[in-house]
Design a protein around this nucleic acid. Structure first.
Length: 520
RNA sequence: GGGCCCGUAGCUCAGCCAGGUAGAGCGGCGGGCUUUUAACCCGUAGACCAGAAAGCUGGGCGGAGGUCCCGGGUUCAAAUCCCGGCGGGCCCGCCA
C-alpha cells in the first residue's frame, strides 16, 4: 500500500460492501492461538483436525502464491499461520483475500492443520475484515530499527520487536508474582500520595506543579518511603507499594524521570530479614515467569546465565572495592581517599568519605557484579535514612542489590530514632547548601521533613525496608540496553505529519455523508 | 551542564571523507504461480508543491528556485564542505 499514489484500496472494500468501520463491531472467538498451539501439536504433516475454531488478530505476514495465500496472524497470545485457499473460500471471499495487507485486523474460522512443510496452521473457511491499516508496516526482516521511530511509534516497536514485547508483558507477571508473594506473607499494598508538599525518601530534584485548590506549589513524589513508614507507625506493620516515582533528572540508559519501584516495609525485622525476603520474592517471581531460577540473558554482547536461586552472595562495599580494584580503602583518612580517587582519575568534591568509596566501587566493582549480589555495610555518612550498623556506627545496616552490573535495589534497617533522624536531616540540609552542585532555586535542596520526624516521635518499631527498581530488573532479565526499552510509552517531542483524513479527502467525505457527521 | 554520533524512497540502508544527472534490497503497482514461511519469476512506477482523487495536469517560455530533516553560507556546481536550528541516540557529571 502506498498512501498517496493510487486510488486507495479502501474503495475496493467499499465496492465489496465491506466498510472496515461500519460492517463489523465485534467478533466472537472460540479460543486463542496459544491454546491451539498446545492442543494441536500432535498433528502430523498434512493432517487436519476436525474442529472448527475462530480466532482474531492482526496480520503480521503475507505470502501470496496465486490461488493459495499464507498469512501470519498474531492474536496477542501467539502467532499462527493462516492458509487461504481459493477452492475453499470461493470467488467472493477471495476478492477480500486479495485486498489484505500486513497490519489488517481480521477474524477467521477454520480447522487446525499441519501443512506439508510442517507448519501448524489454520485452514481458513471464513474470513471477516474487522479493521484495516492505512499505513505501511516496517519491513519484516529488519523490523523497526530507527530509534526515533521506535520511541515515537512505540506501538509498532512493541508489536514487532519480540524482546520488547516480552519484557513489557512479563513486567505485569513479575509484579503480580511479587504481590502474590507478599500477600502470602501478610503484606498489604497502599497508595502513597504522588502530590506532596514536602518530598523525601531520596535525594533528587523533584517535579513541581501547581495545585489550584490550595493555591500552592506541590511536588511529585520522588519516593513512597516516608509515607510507607508512616503506615508502619500506624500499626500497618507489613506494607508495600508498587509506586511510580518522579525525579526531575537527566535521561540516560539507566535513568528515566518517571520510573516504577516496589518499596516494602516490614516491622520487627532488620536488614537480614529483608535481604532474605527480597531474594525469595524475586526468585519466586522469576520462577513463575521463566519456569526456572536460571535465566539466560544478553550481557555486554555475550550470552550469560543468571542464577537467582537463594541465597545470594553478600559482600561489603569495601571488600568489593579491594577485591576488584586491588586498592586498599579500609582505614584510610579522608585526605588519603581523595588522593586515591584522584590517582584513578575520579573527580570527587564531596565532603562525605562514603561518597568517595562509592565512586571507586562504581568504577571497579559494579561492572563485575553480574550474578545477584548484595553489597552491604555502606558507609554511614551516605545513608541518612538507615540505621547505624550495630557493631560499628561508621557503617550503616544498608544493602544494595546488583544484578547484571546494574543497581537494582536498596534497603536497610530503617532508622527509627527521631532524634538521630532529625540530626541526619539537618546535616543533609547543610551538605546540600555547601555542595558545589549548582541546582537553581531552593526546591532542589532536600528539605527538613519535620512532619516525618514527628511521626517517628510517636514511636516506630524496628523496621526493615527496601526499594527495587522494576524497570531495571526487567532490563536485566531481558537483556535490553536502555531503560526506555522496557517502559511502555515514553515522552517524545511532537512531529509533523499528515493524517489520512487530511490526505484523502474523498474518504473523509464518505464518512461525513454516511454517518451524517456534519448534522451536529 | 560538557562531549560525540545519526537524520537520504513506506522499511532497512549505500552514496558524504576526496562536491559534478538521487541509488540498492525489501515493500508498492501489473502479470504468473495451490504448500510457502525474509516465497519465487517477469514487468513497472514512485522522491517537492498545487489541482479533493488514480490516470493525468500545472508550478516550469529564458534564468533562478524547488526534492537527500529545516534555514543560511561557500562554490560554476552542495545529499556531500561550513554555520545555525529541529528531531533522535550514546558517553561523562547528577539522580535509582
Amino acid at each position: 500500500m502506498v498512501l498517496m499514489s493510487e486510488k486507495h484500496r479502501f474503495w475496493s472494500f467499499i465496492a465489496l460492501n465491506m466498510d472496515p468501520y461500519l460492517t463489523e463491531y465485534r467478533y466472537e472467538t472460540s479460543t486463542t492461538v496459544s491454546e491451539i498451539r498446545s492442543r494441536y501439536g500432535y498433528l502430523n504433516n498434512g493432517e487436519e483436525a476436525g474442529d472448527i475454531h475462530s480466532i482474531a488478530g492482526r496480520i503480521m505476514g503475507l505470502r501470496r502464491h496465486g490461488k493459495i495465500v499464507f498469512a501470519v496472524l498474531d492474536d496477542g497470545t501467539a502467532t499462527i499461520q493462516l492458509v487461504f485457499r481459493y477452492d475453499i473460500l470461493g470467488e467472493n471471499s477471495w476478492k477480500v483475500v486479495e485486498l489484505l495487507n500486513i497490519g489488517d485486523i481480521i477474524g477467521v474460522k477454520g480447522k487446525p492443520i499441519r501443512t506439508l512443510r510442517g507448519e501448524l496452521s489454520i485452514l481458513v473457511n471464513e474470513l471477516t475484515v474487522l479493521s484495516i491499516t492505512w499505513r505501511d508496516y516496517p519491513e519484516k526482516w529488519h523490523g523497526l530499527a530507527d530509534t526515533d521511530k521506535r520511541y515515537r511509534l512505540r506501538y509498532l516497536d512493541i508489536m514487532m520487536n519480540e524482546r520488547v514485547r516480552k519484557a513489557i508483558t512479563s513486567m505485569y507477571r513479575i509484579e503480580k508474582s511479587f504481590r502474590d508473594f507478599l500477600d502470602s506473607k501478610g503484606f498489604i499494598e497502599i497508595h502513597t500520595p504522588k502530590l506532596q508538599s514536602i518530598y523525601g525518601g531520596a535525594l533528587a530534584r523533584p517535579f513541581t506543579t501547581k495545585m489550584y485548590s490550595l493555591d500552592k506549589t506541590v511536588y511529585l513524589s520522588i519516593a513512597p518511603e516516608t509515607y510507607l513508614k508512616r503506615a508502619i507507625i500506624a500499626n500497618l506493620y507489613r506494607v508495600y507499594e508498587i509506586a511510580v516515582c518522579f525525579r526531575n533528572e537527566d535521561i540516560d540508559a539507566q535513568h528515566y524521570p518517571e520510573f516504577v519501584q516496589i518499596e516494602i516495609y516490614q516491622a520487627f525485622a532488620d536488614w537480614n530479614d529483608m535481604m532474605k525476603l527480597v531474594e525469595e520474592m524475586i526468585a519466586y517471581g522469576i520462577k513463575n515467569v521463566f519456569g526456572d531460577y536460571k535465566v539466560e540473558v544478553e550481557h555486554n554482547g555475550n550470552r550469560i546465565e543468571l542464577d537467582f536461586k537463594p541465597p545470594w552472595r553478600r559482600i561489603s562495599i569495601e571488600e568489593a572495592v579491594e577485591n576488584y580494584s586491588g586498592i586498599k580503602v579500609r582505614g584510610k583518612s579522608y585526605e588519603e581517599l581523595i588522593g586515591i580517587a584522584k590517582d584513578l582519575g575520579i573527580e570527587v568534591d564531596d565532603p562525605r568519605m562514603g561518597k568517595i568509596i562509592e565512586k571507586i566501587f562504581e568504577r571497579f566493582a559494579e561492572p563485575r557484579l553480574v550474578q545477584p549480589t548484595y553489597v552491604i555495610l555502606y558507609p554511614r555518612d551516605i545513608s541518612p535514612l538507615a540505621r547505624p550498623y550495630r557493631n560499628d556506627p561508621n557503617y550503616s545496616e544498608r544493602f544494595e542489590l546488583f544484578v547484571g552490573s546494574l543497581e537494582i535495589g536498596n534497603g536497610y534497617s530503617e532508622l527509627n530514632n527521631p532524634i538521630i533522624q532529625y540530626y541526619f536531616f539537618k546535616k543533609e540540609e547543610d551538605l546540600r547548601f555547601k555542595s558545589s552542585h549548582k541546582f537553581i532555586g531552593k526546591a532542589e535542596y532536600h528539605p527538613m521533613d519535620k512532619d516525618y520526624v514527628r511521626a517517628l516521635e510517636y514511636g516506630m518499631p524496628p523496621t526493615a525496608g527496601v526499594g527495587i527498581g522494576i524497570y531495571r530488573l526487567i532490563m536485566v532479565l531481558f537483556g535490553l540496553p536502555s531503560i526506555k526499552d522496557v517502559i511502555p510509552f515514553t515522552i517524545v517531542e511532537p512531529d509533523e505529519f499528515k493524517t489520512i483524513a487530511e490526505t484523502h479527502n474523498d474518504i473523509l467525505k464518505h464518512y461525513i455523508e454516511n454517518l451524517h457527521l456534519d448534522k451536529l
